[in-house]
């Protein structure tokens, strides 16, 4: 194993982590403010990817597609909040799980109805094609570096939004005492719709960004949704900082596990078997990490004070 390869894998882990953060940030924000578990978050990710692919195919511009993904996911989120979600805030988590589980079915089959059963095409923009040299001789795709940069921007943006703006002040207030800010005259219903749309837009953005490197197809949000739950649970549900660190931990653990475990096991077993066993162990690795974290810190690494 060379230094260049190790560095590249570390970057890969970082990039996977950033991608997970984009998804998880919206999820954890919605939970933090409204106390809602949203299983349909993966569907909004899918909406973003499909919107981007459709608009990019129609106009020929990835960037217009990206804008469309933000707009469509935010709009879909707002509609879902107005029609369904706002009836669920005072219900227990059980009802929320079931209702949003039903939303997954509706979104998936609805999308298939609109776009057909075959995956859509979406490529990265010409500006971001190609790779750069890494120290040590490796190469790294520019697009993946761009995702890391966008993730960092979103993290900073959220920090500023929540810490420095009037909306952020209300969000923080909403997190710590819902009744009180309602009593103080803040329109809590509009605030919730805005927060839900914001979280949805983040999901849509990551769907579009990731869709360009993967398959834009029905059901694409589900595997990543489960990963995001792992992320926010490790980080502490409701905490943006926790989501960031949880995402990086999961991204790096998963990538390094896939990379290193088969090689470690190859020291003990013949190569074909080591590949299989290594694959099996590395696919369980992040769940093991999560169980370990929760066994030691039952409310995640950075539990918000009030939840």
């Amino acid at each position: 194993m060379t230094f260049a390869l190790a560095l590249e894998q570390l970057l890969n882990g970082l990039q996977l982590g950033v991608m997970l953060f984009l998804m998880a940030a919206g999820l954890t924000l919605i939970f933090g403010v409204m106390g809602l578990i949203n299983l349909a978050h993966g569907s909004l990710y899918m909406v973003g990817a499909f919107a981007c692919a459709a608009v990019a195919a129609w106009t020929g511009s990835f960037w217009l597609g990206l804008a469309a993904s933000l707009a469509c996911a935010a709009a879909a989120g707002a509609v879902v909040e107005l029609v369904v979600i706002r009836r669920l805030y005072d219900r227990d988590h059980l009802d929320q799980v079931l209702a949003t589980f039903a939303l997954i079915l509706i979104f998936s089959e609805g999308t298939r109805w609109l776009f057909g059963s075959f995956p859509l095409y979406l490529d990265i923009p010409p500006l971001l094609q190609g790779a750069v040299q890494l120290p040590g001789g490796g190469e790294y795709p520019i697009y993946r570096l761009a995702i890391i940069a966008i993730g960092a921007l979103v993290a900073v943006g959220l920090y500023v939004l929540i810490g420095r703006t009037r909306l952020g002040m209300r969000i923080r207030a909403g997190e710590s005492d819902r009744e009180m800010i309602g009593a103080l005259g803040v329109d809590i219903r509009t605030l919730y719709t805005v927060v839900f749309a914001l979280g949805s837009a983040l999901a849509g953005l990551s769907g579009a960004l990731v869709g360009a490197t993967q398959s834009v197809q029905v059901g694409m949000g589900e595997p990543i949704l489960i990963l995001c739950f792992v992320v926010i649970v490790i980080g502490g549900i409701g905490s943006i900082k926790g989501a960031l660190l949880g995402a990086l931990l999961v991204g790096i653990c998963d990538t390094m596990g896939r990379f290193l475990l088969p090689q470690l096991i190859a020291l003990l077993l013949p190569p074909a078997q080591a590949g299989m066993v290594g694959g099996a162990v590395s696919s369980m690795l992040i769940y093991v990490v999560m169980a370990l974290v929760l066994a030691v810190k039952p409310r995640g690494l950075f539990p918000p004070a009030h939840v």
Partner: peptide, 13 residues
């Protein structure tokens, strides 16, 4: 000889 997770979507590693 590498075996990846079923349904895996990121192959950077």
């Amino acid at each position: 000889e590498v075996y990846t997770k079923v349904g895996q979507t990121d192959y950077a590693a």
